[in-house]
Every structure is written in C-alpha cells, then in structure tokens.
Design a protein around this nucleic acid. Structure first.
Length: 328
RNA sequence: GCACGGGUGGCGGAGCGGUCAAUCGCACCAGACUGUAAAUCUGGCGGCUAUAUGCCUACGGGGGUUCAAAUCCCUCCCCGUGCA
C-alpha cells in the first residue's frame, strides 16, 4: 500500500520506458527489470487482450504459477497488464489505470521496482499523473442516439450542458463530443477543470524515451512487419475472428488489424497488406512521438544501454551493479 | 504509317473557356488528445515574401483564337490501345 503525503514524504520511485513502436522498449524494460529487481507493467492498449499476441508485440512469455497466484513471465521477469480480457470486450483507459495502480502497489509490496513500458501515452499519463478520469461507463443507448445528431448539434448540446468543457473541447471530434455529453448526462454535473501539477503526482518517476534515428526506425518497422507476417499474424487475426470477434471490432482495433481484416476479406492482396501495414505503423510511430514530445521530463536516449547508469543514479543505491560489473 | 484515347502538383486522379495555384486520395510536415487512444480528430502542403482579398512561375513543348485557356484550334514530342 502506498500512501503519499504529497509535500513531505518522499514519493515511491517508479521507472517508465516509452518510445514509438518497434523501438525496443519491451526488451529494455526486461533488461532493466533484471538489473534493478523490477517487474514490468505493460502500457499498451492492445496487449491487455487475450489472444492478440504477435499482433500486439506481446513479449513471448508464459503464464506461470508463483505461490498462489499466476503471473505472465518472460525471461524470469513478471509482466503485468497483459492478457486481461477477451478482445470482444472493450478495455478502457480508466479500467487500465485502476488495475495498473493495483499492480504497482503489488510490486512495491514485493519490494520490487515497477517499470512501466509501452507505447500508449494516454495510459501512461493516466497512471503516472493519477489522472482522474470520469467514472462514467459507456452508455450504448445514449451514444447511439447522439450518433444520429450532426456535429453542430452535438456542439450545441454540450454548450448547453457544460459551457466550460465545450470551450476547450475539439468541436470537430464527434467521438469526444459524444463522450463529453455522456459524462455530463450520466453524472448530472459538469466536469471539473483539469489541473495537474507534477507536485500532485503520486510517484517519483524517471521516464526514459528511446529515440531512434528516422531511417533506423523505419528499417525496424519494416523488419517487424515482415517478421510478424512470417510468424503468422494473419492466422492470429483469422483465429480471433473465428472465436467470435466481429470484423467490425477487429477493424476498430486499428493498424494491422484493419489491414489484415481487409486482406482476409479479399480487399487487399498479401503484398498490398504488407505495404499498408508498414505505412500505418510508421504513421503510428509519428503520432506516438508527437504525444511524447510534449513531456519535457522524458530523458531521450538513442541507445538503450545508456539507460542503465541513468537508472542507477535515479535509484541512488549501490545495490544495483551495472551489467557486466557484477561478475568481475 | 493510319485511327482512336491520353499527357495536370512527389504519386494516383478530378477539372474541359472565366469564380483554378487547380476538388479529392496517398505521401509529406505540424498539431490536438479528461474512461473507445494501435482509436478519434485538426491544420499546412508550387515558389517567394511583411503569410496577405500580395507577387511570380505553372496543367508535355511551341504557336494561335479570345477581353480571358489546364480547358478551343494548329503543330511537334511522348505514352497506351486498335488497324495496317
């Protein structure tokens, strides 16, 4: 259990590894975990789903029994926030935050270091800054109804309900408008303004970002896509659909799920699919970078190995010999 | 060689006398993000510049018609298809 007395107590330390897709975050996280007695918390919106393995770049670990509990283990390192629900269900950022927070407490309870690693920036922010996301579950009926309105009508509706929110929201983004209205309608109250100062953060966080050279990243993305196809992503998606996940839902999972679904439905040849996947992944990587860019606290590294001394410094203990130093 | 069809911005592809620096898509650049975030959304994208109801150069080359041409005519070059 962590209790944080904001000003006086020293906050518990956690580590975060971010970076665009294919940059090697997962592997670095594992290495850091091995060196600094940590456990990994995946911050990836698709790895929470069971059965999406190759397609979500899940580490190739296994579920193992440890005492009375079962953990997802890779290279001896415990991984959390993986394989939580069926892809038929929709897992949300709020659910993620709540559960990941428990994982952090859990890890502290074992006297270990939580290492958050992943590419879903929103999840990481929610967790690390303890964002208070409105506790309003999706209301299908209401959404369906709101969906029928024009964007302008949605804006007017929101203005009437919550003028402050209407002012700051992206008024061209229907999805956001619908959700904002949903929140007001369901809670019967307006959203309070968000103000998060870092002083309020519950943890002392070191964020390491992997920043590869553009060409290098592109190269790696190509490689990853090719490997996945060879390893059977197409089959994985086919199987996922056979298990009752609708094409519509698969399409909504984004990126390669779309490309592969289109291929399976005869809209794309295998080659077209591959090319499209590479393109989509690259664009995604850029979106991720845009997100991370605005956090000035991220320490960007061009080679993962540079992380070790920085982390050691952050933890400020002698207890963690750097790799290679332990043997001599 | 003849007959059609076509040559438009990095690419695909609209426009077929004025309101065209040229719809749109892709690529590219930048950005947003309060329980769908691998989702969703926005802006820019010929050149120049004080970024603008500004100037310049533009729709294969050249020449014409017209107040006005990417759009019409002539001619040349190139590509595709059909016939020789």
């Amino acid at each position: 259990m962590i209790t944080q007395n904001k000003k006086t107590a020293t906050k518990p330390k956690i580590l975060t590894v971010v970076g665009p897709t294919s940059s090697g975050k997962s592997e670095l996280a594992v290495q850091l975990a091995l060196n600094f007695k940590g456990e990994v918390i995946s911050a990836d919106s698709r790895q929470v789903y069971k059965g999406l393995n190759i397609s979500s770049s899940k580490v190739s670990g296994k579920w193992e029994r440890r005492g009375r509990r079962r953990f997802f283990v890779y290279k001896g390192v415990l991984h959390h926030m993986i394989d939580l629900v069926s892809p038929r269900k929709q897992y949300t950022a709020g659910q993620y935050k709540k559960r990941a927070k428990r994982s952090i407490d859990d890890i502290f309870g074992r006297g270990r270091l939580p290492i958050i690693a992943g590419g879903t920036g929103f999840y990481i922010d929610a967790l690390v800054h303890d964002l208070e996301l409105p506790k309003v579950k999706p209301n299908k009926r209401l959404r369906k109804e709101l969906e029928k309105l024009t964007t302008d009508q949605l804006v007017h509706r929101l203005r009437a309900l919550d003028p402050r929110r209407a002012k700051e929201i992206d008024i061209k983004n229907r999805r956001r408008l619908v959700r904002a209205i949903e929140v007001v309608v369901m809670t019967n109250s307006q959203v309070k303004p968000l103000e998060h100062s870092h002083d309020d953060d519950p943890y002392d966080v070191l964020i390491i970002g992997i920043k590869l050279h553009e060409d290098e990243l592109k190269r790696r993305i190509s490689e990853v896509v090719e490997n996945r196809i060879r390893d059977g992503v197409v089959d994985e998606v086919r199987r996922t659909h056979k298990r009752g996940v609708s094409w519509n839902r698969i399409h909504n999972l984004g990126l390669e799920y779309r490309c592969i679904a289109d291929h399976l439905n005869g809209k794309l040849t295998l080659d077209e699919m591959e090319a499209l996947m590479k393109k989509e992944y690259w664009n995604y990587a850029k979106r991720q970078v845009t997100w991370f860019k605005r956090d000035p606290n991220i320490i960007w590294l061009d080679t993962p190995e540079k992380a070790f001394p920085i982390v050691q410094d952050f933890l400020g203990r002698e207890a963690y010999p750097l790799p290679g130093q332990s043997e001599t």
